[in-house]
């Protein structure tokens, strides 16, 4: 998964129009990022990468880049 694919996945999770997330914004500023979105996000990462992210670490993430960092070597 590259960063662009990750952002497309994230847009799908929060039901945002394609191209609206740039990757530099804070998570707080993304409309629709709520507890249901976090659950969908965990599900989609599990499905596409086979890893289960920690909800606590997701909650601690401040920016989209922090989220990207959570999947570590799985991003290219």
């Amino acid at each position: 998964m590259n960063k662009q694919e990750f952002i497309v996945l994230l847009e799908g999770v929060v039901e945002a129009e394609p191209g609206t997330i740039t990757g530099n914004e804070t998570i707080e500023s993304i409309p629709g990022w709520d507890s249901l979105a976090i659950v969908s996000f965990i599900a989609m990462i599990d499905e596409s990468l086979g890893i289960t992210l920690s909800p606590k670490k997701i909650a601690d993430a401040k920016s989209v880049d922090d989220l990207v960092a959570l999947i570590g070597d799985n991003i290219i």
């Binding site: 507890s35 659950v39 599900a43 599990d46 289960t52 992210l53 920690s54 909800p55 909650a59």
Partner: peptide, 12 residues
């Protein structure tokens, strides 16, 4: 209830 934690637990 922390729904995200419960989901993650169930997934694992």
């Amino acid at each position: 209830m922390n729904g995200a934690e419960i989901f993650s637990f169930t997934l694992e």
